[in-house]
C-alpha cells in the first residue's frame, strides 16, 4: 500500500513536467506578440529588443524554459504584465476563492446525488426513480451559463433576495463564510455550480447501485435476515469506489473549469482570473493560472486514486 502510494506519487512527476512544458509553450502558441501589446505602435526596434531582454525573451527557448521552471518551482511565476503584481499572489488568492465554492458545490452535489441515487436505485421504474432521473437529466443537460443568468434574473433582479454579482459587500477582502451578509454572495454561484455534477453523480450512483443490487450476494445478505437499510449500506460500500472516482473528476472540473460561472457572477476565482488574463493578453498570468489549475487537477486525481485503494479491498496495488 505505502509502496504503491510512493510509486503513484512518483508517476505524477512526468505528468507534472508535461504540464509545465505545455504551459511554457503557451507564450509561443498564443496568437499575438505579448511585447507588442505593451508598447505604443510607434516603438522602435531598439525598444522592443530592450523589453524582450527585460522579460528574458531573447534567450534560446530551452534556456528560457529551464529558467522559468526553476522560478516556478520556487513559487515565482513572474509578474503580471497588467497589474505589476506577482502572479503567484494573484493565482493563490483566486485559487482559494475557487476551491472554497467548488468544494462546497461538489460536496453538496454528492450528498443530494447520493440521496436521489439511493431512492432511484431502490425503486427502479417507480415514480420516485423517474422524478430523480428527471432532476439528473435536467442537471446534465441545462447549460450552466443559462442557469446562472436565470438565477440572477429570478433571485437578484425579480425577487431581490440575493446579490447578483461580486464576492462580499466590500469586495473579496472582507468576505466571510460566517456572516450571512457576506456569505450570501456565494449562494447563487454555488447553486449554479452544483447542478451539473449533481446530475452526473446521481446517474453514477443510480447505475452502480442498481447494478450491485442485482448481484447474487445481495440475496445472501437478505437470506441472513439483514434489514433493507443494512443491505443498502452493503451496496453503497460496493459502489463507493466508482462514485468516489466520479466525485474526484467533478471536483477537478469545478476547480478548473468554472470560467463562465465565475465571469457571470464576477466571482474572483481562477476562472475569472483566466478570463481576465486572456482578454488582456497577460501571458505570465495566463501561464501561472493554467499551471496551478492543471497541477490541482493532477493532485485531485492522485488523492482520489489513493483513497480508492483504501475503500476497495479488491484493488491490489503494488
Amino acid at each position: 500500500m505505502w509502496l504503491y502510494a510512493a510509486r503513484r506519487v512518483l508517476f505524477t512527476i512526468p505528468i507534472g513536467l508535461g504540464v509545465t512544458i505545455i504551459c511554457f509553450a503557451l507564450i509561443y502558441l498564443a496568437p499575438g506578440d505579448p511585447v507588442q501589446s505593451l508598447l505604443p505602435p510607434d516603438a522602435t526596434a531598439n525598444d522592443i529588443a530592450q523589453l524582450k531582454h527585460y522579460y528574458g525573451l531573447d534567450k534560446p527557448i530551452p534556456v528560457q524554459y529551464i529558467l522559468w521552471l526553476g522560478h516556478a518551482l520556487t513559487g515565482d511565476l513572474g509578474i503580471s504584465i497588467q497589474t505589476n503584481r506577482p502572479v503567484t499572489d494573484e493565482v493563490w488568492r483566486a485559487l482559494g476563492n475557487t476551491v472554497s465554492i467548488a468544494t462546497i458545490s461538489a460536496v453538496l452535489a454528492m450528498i443530494i446525488a447520493l440521496g436521489l441515487g439511493i431512492v432511484a436505485a431502490t425503486n427502479i421504474g417507480g415514480w420516485a426513480d423517474r422524478l430523480a432521473t428527471a432532476i439528473a437529466v435536467f442537471g446534465v443537460s441545462v447549460p450552466t451559463f443559462w442557469l446562472a443568468v436565470v438565477l440572477v434574473i429570478v433571485f437578484a433582479v425579480q425577487l431581490g433576495v440575493l446579490p447578483a454579482t461580486g464576492m462580499g459587500s466590500k469586495g473579496s477582502n472582507t468576505f466571510s463564510w460566517f456572516e450571512w451578509s457576506e456569505a450570501r454572495y456565494a449562494v447563487l454561484p454555488i447553486v449554479a455550480m452544483t447542478l451539473t455534477p449533481l446530475g452526473i453523480l446521481m446517474r453514477t450512483t443510480r447505475a452502480s447501485l442498481a447494478d450491485i443490487l442485482s448481484q447474487d450476494f445481495i440475496q445472501t445478505l437478505r437470506a441472513k435476515g439483514l434489514s433493507e437499510t443494512a443491505v443498502i449500506r452493503h451496496a453503497i460500500a460496493n459502489a463507493l469506489p466508482q462514485i468516489l472516482a466520479m466525485f474526484g473528476l467533478q471536483l477537478g472540473y469545478l476547480i478548473g473549469g468554472s470560467i463562465l460561472i465565475e465571469t457571470i457572477f464576477t466571482w474572483p476565482g481562477t476562472g475569472f482570473l483566466l478570463n481576465k488574463a486572456i482578454l488582456t493578453r497577460d501571458i505570465p498570468l495566463l501561464q501561472g493560472t493554467i499551471l496551478v489549475l492543471a497541477m490541482a487537477f493532477v493532485g485531485i486525481n492522485l488523492i482520489v486514486d489513493l483513497i480508492q485503494t483504501l475503500v476497495d479491498p479488491r484493488i491490489k496495488r503494488i
Binding site: Q215, D216, F217, Q219, T220, L221, R222, A223, K224, G225, L226, S227, H234, A237, N238, V311, D312, P313, R314
Partner: peptide, 24 residues
C-alpha cells in the same frame, strides 16, 4: 426477517458471487 439466517438459513451455489466482495 428474524427467521432468515437464524432458524432457516441458506447456502448458495456460487461461492464466487454469493459473498460481499468488500467485507471480510
Amino acid at each position: 426477517n428474524a427467521v432468515r439466517g437464524a432458524a432457516i438459513s441458506m447456502v448458495f451455489q456460487e461461492p464466487m458471487t454469493a459473498l460481499d466482495p468488500v467485507y471480510t
